[in-house]
Design a protein around this nucleic acid. Structure first.
Length: 467
DNA sequence: CTAGGGTTAG
């Protein structure tokens, strides 16, 4: 018998099950699932049996922190306990399956719940729509949306938000705005979240002017912009290189008390570092730390990047160490930032060793980091080696191609550059204007007019095919 | 179940 258990676990009553669920919920939230399981075992031993809420809490935690299969196996435990799964059980499982990109399983679970006579609710429909959008299936998402309307379930604001966000995610931004206007005409009162979604996508697609108009509308409708609105607008400024304006937004964000987390700070720090305003970036870092803002993985990556940009590699590595001490694992961003930092200070060997070590420790290949290495090799004049790394790459993206094309053009190797440009087009990837121009003008300047025109024609054809 | 932050080329 566990004598350390609080006394309320000893009485089997409605109160004790409620308290049990509160304990399980708080343990699950802090990723202590093992402890939660121990408490459940003890509770059962004391005759305090968990109910469906207990199991649903476990399902949510297992999908979030362990695996879908672990969560799914709770279903049999529910049956063994003589309980019946409910709509929340299935909603959590569907959300869990979507987290692991198991699209067929989402549909299966949906069918299964209907067969069991469990009626889907608006959460079920919202989750399914979200799943389909995230997996690039707008038509299926739209079908769910129609079913929702056709059935007895009333869509809510979140349903509309998922629809608008999903349409934008698929690139249908104008359609999303039209959908939004249509809803408004039918009496829909959008919330700040809805406006934030539109503002975010308008900025991301380069329609900053329209984004500012939507922001104005948000305020005219009596809404107050929140912390997310501010970070979104800031990002919008930095995207269009309006650093001053972005900084002004940050100041206003601070004055409104919206810099309570690291989001705003990370946005402004990265933007400053990117344009070389390292001193200013460091002022913001100091302020963030002085204000006692909790640092997460993204914050650390931001700080590591600033130090790398300064050439302070030892400090950067110290921060990686601190990260580990906080129990946070570094990710692909961390690795890329470090590889880039090493290349920047000319330590190509170090960068290569780091990449090799990543491979050996089973970290999956990181294209961005490889791109940094190739760029570093070009800068260090190790041309043949850069070519070799490039050829051995099993995957390439537009950065890879751009780095190679610019490198070759700098060496006046315009024919190989044209070759790589062509293979890039064959892969269906877009070519950055500057790289395209470097090859064409290079060929022309060295007297190969015909080749230049030929290449230009190929580029234009490729552009047509993409549309 | 929806909305914000971090890496590489020019």
């Amino acid at each position: 018998m566990n004598s350390k258990l609080p006394t309320y676990f000893h009485n089997s009553s409605k109160l004790s099950i409620k308290l049990l669920n509160i304990s399980i919920s708080s343990l699950c939230k802090t990723q202590q699932i093992d402890k939660a399981e121990v408490i459940i075992i003890d509770a059962i031993r004391l005759g305090n049996f968990p109910n469906i809420v207990t199991y649903n809490t476990l399902i949510a935690a297992y999908t979030r922190f362990v695996s879908f299969d672990a969560a799914y196996s709770i279903l049999s435990r529910i049956k063994e306990a003589g309980l019946t799964p409910n709509v929340v059980t299935y909603n959590s499982l569907i959300a869990g399956a979507s987290r692991y990109s198991r699209l067929p399983q989402c549909s299966e679970l949906f069918q299964q719940m209907i067969q069991l006579g469990i009626y889907p609710d608006v959460w079920t429909y919202n989750t399914l729509m979200h799943v389909f959008f995230v997996n690039g299936r707008p038509h299926e998402a739209n079908k769910i949306f129609s079913d929702c309307f056709g059935g007895n379930i009333l869509p809510c604001t979140i349903t509309f938000n998922i629809m608008i966000n999903g349409l934008c995610r698929m690139g249908y931004i104008s359609n999303a705005v039209r959908f939004f206007r249509n809803l408004q005409e039918n009496g829909f009162k959008p919330k700040v979240e809805t406006y934030n979604i539109l503002i975010h996508w308008l900025c991301k697609s380069g329609r900053g002017g329209k984004a500012w108009k939507i922001l104005k509308e948000l305020e005219e409708m009596g809404h107050v912009p929140n912390a997310i609105t501010y970070t979104t607008m800031m990002k919008c400024c930095f995207r269009s290189k309006k650093i001053e304006k972005g900084f002004e937004v940050f100041m206003e964000m601070k004055s409104k008390g919206y810099t309570f987390d690291s989001y705003g700070y990370c946005t402004v720090i990265s933007a400053l570092a990117k344009v070389g305003l390292i001193k200013e970036a460091n002022v913001c870092i100091e302020e963030m730390i002085r204000n006692g803002i909790g640092l997460d993985l993204v914050s650390y990556n931001t700080l590591i990047n600033v130090n790398c940009k300064e050439g302070k590699l030892e400090t950067a590595l110290q921060l990686v160490d601190d990260l580990g001490k906080c129990g946070i694992e570094s990710d692909q961003y961390t690795h890329t930032i470090l590889v880039n930092g090493m290349c920047k200070v000319g330590d190509i060997d170090g960068a290569e060793r780091y990449l090799k070590r990543m491979e050996m420790t089973g970290v999956k290949s990181n294209l961005a980091a490889c791109n940094c290495l190739i760029f570093g090799l070009w800068k260090a004049g190790q041309i043949e080696y850069a070519m070799k790394v490039f050829e051995n790459l099993e995957q390439k993206d537009e950065f890879t191609y751009t780095v190679m094309i610019h490198g070759l053009c700098k060496q006046k190797m315009f024919f190989p550059a044209a070759g790589i440009l062509r293979s890039c087009l064959m892969e269906g990837m877009k070519v950055v204007r500057s790289a395209k121009w470097a090859v064409i003008s290079g060929l022309r300047a060295s007297g190969y007019r015909r080749e230049a025109d030929n290449l230009l024609a190929t580029i234009q054809t490729a552009n047509c095919l993409r549309c």
